[in-house]
């Protein structure tokens, strides 16, 4: 198992290198640079001498390939570069934002699991009854409502009818004030979790329906096991594999930041950081954030594969 993990980790290196090359040159291929991003149309008022001075300032005066190797050299020494706008090293900027993104991802996954799995299981057990219908309706609503709509509705209801808005641009971290932090995070987490719950519910339901028809379930029942035991330890456990896959992919996305929800709820997470860095053409920051997000994504994938093995004894790594 350890050997397997080590092999996977080594295989990640080319993936990350590929991501860095892609992002580096994609950023330089799109029109506009840090100067036009900063000055807007006023950039047209610069004389050639002024422009050259600013290019030196932003490090744009060297050819892109040379810039890439300078950057790569720094990265191998653990230095992701410096963000001029934030006045800090890129890694520090990312690590400032990451706790929020991690917390938001965890909370929304927990909310999704708490809502999605029970409803999915109930829907499968009471297949084609009123309960199933309600469950499926819930999933349909969750999938159909985009989260900008859910988020905006929540904010509207809170502010107009309850005269509150826990986060109005004054985000506090969990460490500083846990209670206030949870008040601020619960609504965005619910917004994200709601949509995720809907897809988890559908996945759980269909996997459960399939598993419940299997021979070993009939065997379990005929052995005289209690229905509860059959459902939870025999059926659900086997039905969870596709659910874990789905959860892994979704959690990977969430760790890359949830741009829209962060925008609506004014949360300073990784998603907004990345989007603003792109629109400001802050190359070092864009590269740092993407590399960081890609790293999280491959790590989650690895975690998902390891979890498979613990759910399903038939899957094992290392032994052949």
């Amino acid at each position: 198992m350890l050997r397997y993990i080590a092999q996977r980790l080594i295989a990640f290196l080319p993936t990350l290198l590929g991501v860095s090359v892609l992002v580096f040159f994609a950023m330089r291929l799109i029109p506009g640079d840090a100067i036009t991003a900063q000055l807007g149309t006023e950039a047209g008022m610069l004389t050639p001498t002024q422009r050259a001075a600013l290019e030196r300032y932003y490090g744009l005066d060297k050819p892109p390939v040379e810039q890439y190797f300078i950057w790569l050299g720094e990265v191998t020494q653990g230095n992701l570069g410096f963000s001029i706008r934030h006045g800090k090293p890129v890694l520090e900027v990312i690590l400032d934002r990451f706790p929020l993104t991690l917390q938001l991802a965890l909370m929304s996954v927990i909310i999704a699991l708490l809502i999605g799995i029970p409803i999915g299981v109930l829907s499968a057990i009471y297949h084609n009854t009123l309960i199933d219908l309600i469950g499926r309706l819930f999933a349909l609503i969750g999938l159909a409502l985009p989260n900008f709509l859910v988020g905006t509705l929540i904010i509207y209801i809170l502010s107009v009818y309850f005269k509150i808005l826990p986060n109005s641009g004054n985000y506090v971290s969990f460490g500083d004030d846990p209670r206030r932090n949870l008040e601020q995070m619960i609504f965005p987490a619910f917004t994200l979790g709601f949509a995720l719950a809907a897809s988890l519910m559908r996945m759980t339901r269909s996997a459960m329906l399939e598993v419940l028809r299997e021979d070993y379930i009939r065997t379990a029942r005929s052995k005289g096991l209690r229905e509860r035991r059959v459902t939870y330890s025999h059926a659900l456990r086997n039905a969870l594999i596709p659910v874990v896959t789905l959860l892994g992919v979704q959690a990977g996305y969430l760790l890359g930041g949830a741009v829209i929800v962060e925008q609506i709820f004014a949360l300073p997470g990784l998603g907004r950081l990345a989007v603003n860095a792109i629109s400001q053409r802050e190359y070092a920051l864009v590269q740092g954030v993407t590399l960081f997000i890609a790293f999280n994504f491959v790590m989650i994938n690895l975690a998902v594969d390891v979890i498979y093995a613990s759910i399903d004894p038939r899957i094992s790594y290392g032994k052949r």
Binding site: S159, I164, G169, A266
Partner: peptide
Amino acid sequence: MRVIPNEATIVAALRAGEI
């Protein structure tokens, strides 16, 4: 000076008396 990227949220924050 706070940054609230979505103007509908700014309007909500005003209505809620938060800003």
